[in-house]
């Protein structure tokens, strides 16, 4: 494991809102080609951690490295200086803030807990639009359609991508008219269109029936193989998590309480107490 290249390294990240410490000194590392899950009970701070990683929130304290480059670093400022309740005060001195679009350009793509597709666009357009950030043409060449070759390539790549994820048969349908499972798939495909090296999935199986969940697990596996990328996901569906993850981080009340392979996590007493519970047939 240690000889693998680190894709994402979260270092002592603390998120504090007012007096509430939502994420407390979280450190985690995701290596190349891994599928890592972040689990925990409701309100444990999973999505907050996710938002701090993707640049939606600025962490109150801590640093985040992406592909070994420092992308986010912050320390308590202003009022927070006095009220800061976390640890590692003074360890971080720089302020580096990246917006979500800059992080996506660096190769971090995400999906959302409540599906956020572009509603007036077709399946094809949704994926095609996500290719916008890899454009090389400027505003004027695009406006006067002088970038025909690039446009053609974008469309071809989009078609290829849709074929890979088996959505090419519905490509001209409105994104929101698809069944729920396919909308999820499309959202993942849209994230893949940005050519990411790390894919972050926020509860991909939320609201899915067991059949769809099984398909999704297979799909996530395929995505990793076909696109050769690293995946970090938040999930509540234990079957899915145990099935596909290489490693799991468990957090509760913002703190990491365990880390390990699915087998280790399942037998960890702390995790069972805080989250998994004892299943009835055991």
């Amino acid at each position: 494991m240690e000889d693998k290249r680190s894709v994402l390294r979260v270092e002592n990240v603390t998120m504090q809102f007012g007096g509430v410490v939502a994420v407390d000194n979280l450190s985690m590392e995701v290596f190349e080609h891994e599928i890592v899950a972040l689990i925990g009970p409701n309100g444990a701070g999973k999505t907050t951690a996710f938002n701090a990683i993707t640049g939606v929130y600025e962490p109150t304290n801590g640093a985040i490295y992406f592909n070994d480059n420092l992308v986010i670093e912050n320390h308590p400022q202003g009022k927070m200086k006095k009220n800061y309740a976390g640890r590692n005060m003074g360890k971080y001195e720089k302020i580096i803030v990246k917006t979500p679009d800059q992080l996506t350009r660096l190769g971090m793509a995400r999906t959302f807990q409540n599906i956020r597709l572009w509603k007036t666009m077709t399946v094809f357009e949704n994926v095609l639009t996500a290719k916008h950030l890899r454009r090389t043409s400027n505003y004027f060449t695009a406006m006067f359609h002088l970038n025909a070759r690039e446009e053609e390539k974008m469309r071809q790549d989009t078609l290829d991508l849709l074929k890979l994820v088996e959505l090419d048969d519905v490509k001209d349908e409105l994104a929101t008219s698809l069944p729920y499972g396919k909308q999820r798939k499309l959202e993942i495909a849209r994230a893949l269109a940005t050519n990411p090296s790390l894919l972050l999935l926020d509860e991909p199986a939320a609201g899915m029936n067991p059949q769809e969940t099984v398909e999704l697990a297979q799909f996530i596996h395929d995505v990793r193989e076909k696109f050769n990328i690293t995946i970090l996901l938040i999930e509540h569906h234990m079957n899915l998590v145990m099935d596909i993850s290489d490693r799991i981080y468990v957090i509760d009340f913002g703190k990491e309480i365990a880390e390990g392979t699915p087998a280790e996590i399942q037998s960890n007493q702390k995790v069972i107490d805080a989250y998994l519970g004892v299943s009835e047939d055991e």
């Binding site: 679009d101 793509a109 996500a130 994230a191």
Partner: peptide, 11 residues
Amino acid sequence: DDEIAAEAMGI
């Protein structure tokens, strides 16, 4: 259509 999604897709 969706500002947050647009930003997350690198726009």
